[in-house]
Amino acid sequence: MSIQHFRVALIPFFAAFCLPVFAHPETLVKVKDAEDQLGARVGYIELDLNSGKILESFRPEERFPMMSTFKVLLCGAVLSRVDAGQEQLGRRIHYSQNDLVKYSPVTEKHLTDGMTVRELCSAAITMSDNTAANLLLTTIGGPKELTAFLHNMGDHVTRLDRWEPELNEAIPNDERDTTMPAAMATTLRKLLTGELLTLASRQQLIDWMEADKVAGPLLRSALPAGWFIADKSGASERGSRGIIAALGPDGKPSRIVVIYTTGSQATMDERNRQIAEIGASLIKHW
C-alpha cells in the first residue's frame, strides 16, 4: 500500500482517536478583511474532515458561482459510474476541433488520438481543461445529471445548469451553476471519506486533486513544508474566484476548506493574494 493509499484508508480510523479540534476566530477576521479589500462577498467554511463538524464559517449558506470547482464533483460522478460498472477509466473518447472550447490546454493536443476517461478527469482537475469537462459531462448525461447525482448524495443546493464556458457567467442573483460553501464542503467530504465511492475511487479523486497544477498562487502558496493539500480552484466573470481543498499537517488531510468570492473589481492577482492570506491565517491558527 502506497503512502497515498495509506492516508485515505486511515481517514475513518483516525476519527475515533483524534484530539479535539478548536476553532480560531482570527481567520474570520481575515475573511472579513478580504471582503473589505476586494469590495466583494466572500464565503468561507472550515470543516473537520473526520467528524464533519463546522469549525468556522462566514456566509456559509449564501450562493456563489461554482466556477471550475464543479470539476471535482463531476469526476466524482464519473467515478461513481465506474464503480457501478457503467463506465471505464480506460475508455478512449474521440472528439473533433468543433468540440474544443476556450481554455483547453490538454485536449487541444489530442485531437488525433483522443483521450481516456482517466486522462480527461486528470486534465479537468489538474489543468482545469474546459473541453475535458464538457466531454465528461456528456458521458454522464449533461449538467442536469450532475445535479441529480448531487441530489442523490443529499446535496439539494449545488446545481450545474450549463456547459463550459457559459457556466462562468456569474450573474448576480442567478442561481444557475452555483453552490453554497456549507453544501460544497459537505459534499466534498462525502466524496473523499464516505461510502458513495469505493476506496480506490476515493483515492483516485484525491490523487487528481493533489496533482492540481493551476492553484499555486492560492492556499498552496501559504503551505508550510510537510503539509498535505488536494485542491481545485476556479475563476469566472465578475471578479469571481474560489477554491475547495482538503489539507492538513503531517502529510495527511484533516480539514476541508472552501473559499468563494464574487462581485469584485480587483485584479486576479489581488483576488489570489487575499485567498492566500486567508490560508496563511488558517495555518497560523491551526
Rank of each mutant, 00 (worst) to 15 (best):
D250V: 08
S233F: 03
T139M: 08
E87T: 05
T179C: 02
L38N: 06
S2T: 14
A246S: 07
S96G: 13
V42A: 05
G226N: 11
W227C: 03
P253Y: 07
T198A: 10
A183F: 07
G263R: 08
K232N: 01
M268W: 08
A84P: 01
S221Y: 09
A185T: 02
N50G: 15
T116Q: 08
E270G: 06
Q203R: 13
A266V: 10
D250Q: 14
F14G: 09
R271K: 08
Q88T: 14
T187L: 06
Q203P: 12
R241C: 02
G251E: 08
D129Y: 00
D161V: 03
D207Y: 12
T187Q: 02
M67T: 08
L89T: 04
P25H: 10
S221L: 08
S80M: 11
I125G: 03
W227S: 02
I259G: 00
E145T: 09
T178E: 01
E195D: 14
R220Q: 02
V21A: 15
Q265R: 12
G154D: 08
G239L: 04
L135F: 04
T126N: 06
I229Y: 01
P249T: 05
P224F: 01
T158I: 01
G263W: 07
A222L: 06
V214N: 10
R202Q: 05
Q204P: 13
V117C: 03
A211F: 07
E87W: 02
I54N: 05
K190R: 14
D83F: 00
L47H: 00
L188W: 01
E175S: 10
L47P: 02
S264N: 08
Y95V: 07
A211H: 15
T187K: 00
T27M: 05
D212T: 07
H156Y: 10
A170L: 09
C75S: 04
P20T: 09
E61N: 14
L38Y: 08
S254H: 09
R41V: 07
N173V: 06
I206V: 15
Q88D: 14
D250G: 14
D83R: 02
A266L: 08
K213H: 10
L219F: 08
F22N: 13
S80N: 13
T178I: 01
I171E: 14
N272E: 07
S96D: 13
A15K: 06
K284D: 11
D99H: 11
R238C: 13
L146R: 01
G216R: 08
P20R: 14
R202T: 11
T138R: 13
D99T: 11
S57P: 00
C75L: 03
G226H: 09
K53T: 13
P253T: 05
F149L: 08
L192S: 03
L223R: 04
D177C: 02
D99R: 08
N173P: 09
H24T: 09
T178V: 02
A215D: 04
D250I: 07
P165S: 04
K252T: 12
R81F: 06
M127T: 10
P181E: 00
S201D: 00
D207E: 13
T262S: 12
A230D: 02
P253V: 06
P172V: 11
T198K: 10
T187P: 02
V214H: 07
S80C: 10
N168T: 03
E277D: 09
R41M: 08
A266P: 04
S254N: 09
S221P: 07
I283T: 06
F6G: 08
E175D: 13
L111W: 11
N134G: 00
P105T: 07
G90T: 14
N98D: 13
D83Y: 02
T27A: 04
S2W: 09
H94A: 10
P143V: 02
C18W: 12
G226R: 07
D250R: 10
W286G: 01
F14S: 14
E175K: 09
L10E: 05
E166F: 12
A245M: 05
D99A: 12
F6N: 12
P253D: 04
D36G: 15
I243C: 06
V8M: 13
M115V: 05
Y103S: 06
Q203G: 10
P65Q: 03
L282P: 05
M1R: 00
L137N: 00
V42S: 07
G251T: 06
L218E: 01
L38E: 06
F64L: 11
L192A: 05
S236N: 11
T193I: 13
G52D: 05
L137I: 07
Y103D: 04
I140R: 02
S80I: 09
G226W: 03
R63S: 05
W227T: 00
L196Q: 13
G226T: 08
Q4E: 15
M184F: 07
A183P: 05
L167G: 00
E195G: 11
L282A: 07
R189C: 13
G85M: 09
M184L: 05
V82F: 07
D99S: 11
R255G: 02
R41L: 08
E108A: 12
C121S: 04
P65N: 07
M115G: 00
I244G: 00
R41Q: 09
M153K: 06
I54M: 11
D269K: 11
L196R: 13
V29A: 15
R241T: 02
K53Y: 10
M66T: 03
S57T: 09
S281P: 05
A183Y: 08
G85T: 06
L137A: 01
D36N: 11
I54D: 09
I243L: 09
L55I: 13
D212G: 07
S96M: 11
Q4S: 13
L223H: 02
S68H: 00
V42D: 00
T186Y: 14
T126Y: 03
A200Y: 10
A200V: 11
